[in-house]
Amino acid sequence: MRAAAVLQTGLRLIYPTTCLTCDALVDADHGLCGPCWRDTPFVSAPLCEGCGAPLKGDHTAAGELCDDCLRTERPWTAGRTAMLYAGNARKLVLALKHGDRVDIARPAATWMAAAAHDIVQPHTLVTAVPLHWQRRIRRRYNQSVLLARGVAKALDLGLCPDLLIRPAATPVLDGMSPDDRFSAMSRALTINDRKAELARHRPVLVVDDVMTSGATLAAATGALLRAGAAEVSVLTLARAVKDA
């Protein structure tokens, strides 16, 4: 252990730890410097019970819903998010999703776990929104699985990353209207029959990188409830809102 600590100290002298979004030096691995932390739109209470976005205006009581979740019924029990999809948060998500910055998954999962601590039970099973196998090969990893793995570890929960599958390729949802997104994702996800028993009569937490309309998470929730899950909650790294 002492030798490992000495080696780690030596490596830090040669390769100083820098902020995830800039070149500033930071004290801890996988962290943000002070200015970048302040510029990252982390979410704080009061929260929408449906998606975790901060409540505004008259919606400030615990358990209330934001305007978007009032307009669109959510099939899941509760939702949480770590930050709003804007500014530094958007940079982090895009770097993780498309920039091969898998190092972001570790701290991001820690932030997500902190956001979700009040909606999970000790026997909750964590899973991730799946990619179609063709997209998985092109990207080389599923960022949602990386996040789910970190969340499960941080919260000491069971993990089944391949509980859901995406049998057919679905179109890219960026630029679609909410109605088109829900239409495209309707029944697009299904349960992995080989793992279905793990979710039966058990609460499940579905992890994804970003929630926009909620169509993908709704498809995941529907598949899990049809497979016998006791209830489903959702957790994202970031929530896209119109005025963020």
Rank of each mutant, 00 (worst) to 15 (best):
I165H: 03
L146Q: 11
A169M: 08
L96N: 03
G228R: 10
L147Y: 05
V232K: 13
V232C: 03
T110D: 08
W111V: 02
K195I: 01
P161T: 08
I119S: 07
Q134N: 08
L157Q: 12
A128R: 11
L96E: 05
G228T: 07
K195P: 00
V204C: 10
D208Y: 09
V126K: 11
A115P: 02
A115C: 07
A188G: 03
I165V: 15
A199I: 10
N192Q: 07
A154Q: 15
R136N: 09
V145N: 00
N142W: 05
A238M: 01
L155N: 08
A184F: 06
E197G: 01
A114V: 04
R166P: 03
V232T: 00
D162Y: 07
A109F: 02
L146G: 12
R226H: 14
G99Q: 04
H132E: 08
L164A: 02
M176Q: 13
M176P: 01
L237G: 04
L131H: 06
V102L: 04
L159T: 07
R187H: 15
L224P: 00
H132P: 11
D208W: 09
G222D: 15
L164Y: 12
P171W: 04
T236G: 02
L189W: 10
R181K: 09
A108R: 03
S177F: 00
K195Y: 00
N192R: 06
T110V: 12
D162H: 14
L164K: 09
A223W: 08
V151M: 14
A238S: 11
E231H: 15
T221N: 10
L96Q: 09
R194K: 14
D156Y: 09
R140Y: 06
G175C: 09
G99H: 02
K242F: 02
A199S: 13
A238Q: 02
T124G: 12
A199T: 05
D208S: 11
D209C: 06
A168S: 11
T127K: 06
T127C: 14
L157D: 03
T236M: 05
G222I: 01
S183L: 12
V206E: 01
V232M: 10
L235Q: 01
D118V: 06
G175F: 08
L235R: 04
F182H: 15
V204W: 10
L237W: 15
D156L: 11
T170A: 13
I137P: 00
I191T: 07
L237N: 05
P171T: 03
T110A: 13
T127A: 12
A169K: 06
P171H: 03
V172Y: 00
E197Y: 05
A95W: 00
T221Q: 09
G99Y: 12
A105G: 12
I165A: 11
H201S: 15
L198W: 06
L224R: 14
D100S: 14
K153G: 00
S233K: 07
Y141E: 13
G99C: 05
I119T: 09
S233E: 07
A188E: 09
A230V: 03
M112F: 06
V210R: 02
D174H: 07
V102D: 07
D156A: 15
A227I: 09
I119Y: 08
G175W: 01
D208A: 12
A230E: 15
